[in-house]
């Protein structure tokens, strides 16, 4: 089972690296932020798989922290960065 879990974790890491393309390309900042949000979800799955693969339950707490905090950066983006951008667009 360890091999299965580790290969899925490796695959998830590969998808994460592939997702970096979207961060680099954009084109809008929302695309970049959503890619980062997706990385958060991927990281949760990846950590949970590692916890199973190495049979080390405390790693699940790391996944818990990832899951809880993923929303904070997104909210900061919507409330601060995106709002400022929209306002600049309107005033230009």
């Amino acid at each position: 089972m360890e091999i299965l879990y580790l290969s899925i974790a490796l695959f998830l890491l590969l998808t994460l690296v592939a997702g970096l393309w979207r961060v680099l390309q954009g084109p809008t900042s929302a695309d970049r932020m959503l890619a980062a949000q997706l990385f958060g979800t991927t990281a949760v799955a990846c950590v949970l798989l590692l916890a199973q693969a190495f049979e080390y339950p405390p790693l699940r707490d790391v996944a818990l922290i990832f899951a809880l905090l993923a929303a904070v950066a997104a909210v900061a983006f919507i409330r601060r960065a995106w709002a400022a951008e929209e306002q600049n667009d309107v005033s230009d």
Binding site: A43, L69, V72
Partner: peptide, 28 residues
Amino acid sequence: PDVAMAEASIGAGLTGALLLSALARLGS
């Protein structure tokens, strides 16, 4: 895992929000 927890909460979560907020202020 202890450092991973600190990195997950501060590096990926809080610092991101702080930097985004700072950037918005720069954009004003």
